[in-house]
């Protein structure tokens, strides 16, 4: 397959941005899954970091091929999701959010201080094993799967819990099981995003998976909306493109970026796409 010259130029200039759009779309979906059952997690960046570090170690230390590394990259984040979720999801309230912030900070300290993870310098020289086909293929597959699940009895139960947990429990919804399932799916998606991102950017470091990126990922879903999976992805696209589009403004860029987000949240409380999944008309 030959790539036309204009596309080649475009990818040469904006390759990183194209990767980032797809990866951030996956992260937005990972946030969406948790918010869709009415929970708040701030551990998406930490799960992403676990996927990134574990996959790079598999590539560099164990020499595993990428077709094995990519699926295995969900393992570490899923295990941590279970460890964090089992005690906190039994409680109602913000315990999951607090525990996931803690997870991110603990892991950052571990990456910084354990030689295996490269300390403050991070891990570099990562071979470029992932590409846009994999990133966007997974993104599309994830959107489709979440959309199909959303338009089923499972999706109804998720929306019911988000609206009124007590009423949902009385309808027979096993709240703990759904919350755990959502958190595990969310951790797996973030882990895949971390693995893909690490294998297109040649370097990963402990600063990329702390509290600030966690809040950025949350804002993807809040800006886009959580009524449909696609809405959160649109939110990620907007927030990833915005700084690039405002590049001309140099110093004012971050200010305007912030103003746009604040205005959007104030005037579009349901997100840019506040629609909900349509299910079954009679």
């Amino acid at each position: 397959m030959t790539i036309p010259p204009w596309l080649d130029d475009f990818l040469w200039t904006y390759g990183n941005l194209v990767h980032a759009l797809g990866v951030n779309g996956l992260l937005a979906l990972s946030m969406y899954v948790v918010l869709a059952v009415g929970q708040l997690s701030l551990g998406q960046a930490a799960f992403m970091g676990l996927g990134a570090y574990s996959s790079v170690l598999m590539t560099q230390q164990l020499g595993l091929p990428f077709w094995a590394v990519l699926p295995l990259s969900v393992l570490a984040p899923v295990v941590f999701a279970l460890v964090i979720g089992l005690p906190t999801l039994r409680l109602s309230g913000v315990y999951l959010a607090i525990a996931t912030i803690g997870l991110g900070e603990v892991l950052r300290a571990v990456y910084l201080n354990v030689d295996l993870f490269g300390g403050a310098l991070g891990l570099s020289g990562i071979p470029e094993r992932a590409d846009n086909t994999m990133i966007y293929g997974l993104l599309l597959a994830a959107i489709l799967a979440l959309w199909l699940v959303g338009r089923s009895g499972i999706g109804r139960a998720m929306e019911a819990m988000r609206e009124d947990e007590t009423a949902a429990a009385v309808m027979g919804v096993n709240l703990l099981r759904y919350k755990m399932g959502a958190l595990v799916a969310s951790a797996a998606l973030a882990g895949l995003a971390g693995c893909l991102n690490a294998h297109v950017s040649s370097f990963i470091g402990p600063g990329e998976y702390g509290f600030e990126p966690a809040v950025t990922i949350l804002s993807y879903a809040l800006l886009g909306g959580i009524g449909t999976p696609i809405a959160s992805v649109v939110g990620a696209f907007i927030l990833t493109l915005l700084p690039e589009l405002l590049r001309e403004l140099s110093d004012l860029r971050l200010v305007l970026n912030g103003v746009i987000i604040v205005v959007a949240v104030l005037f579009l409380p349901g997100g840019v796409l506040p629609f909900r999944l349509r299910r079954r008309a009679a």
Partner: peptide, 26 residues
Amino acid sequence: FGAMTVLENVLTGLHTTARATLPEVI
């Protein structure tokens, strides 16, 4: 559940009758 339709509300009441697994749903 205010944001759902009337029919969807009643369908949540049938949650306990659902048997299909996640792969069957997807």
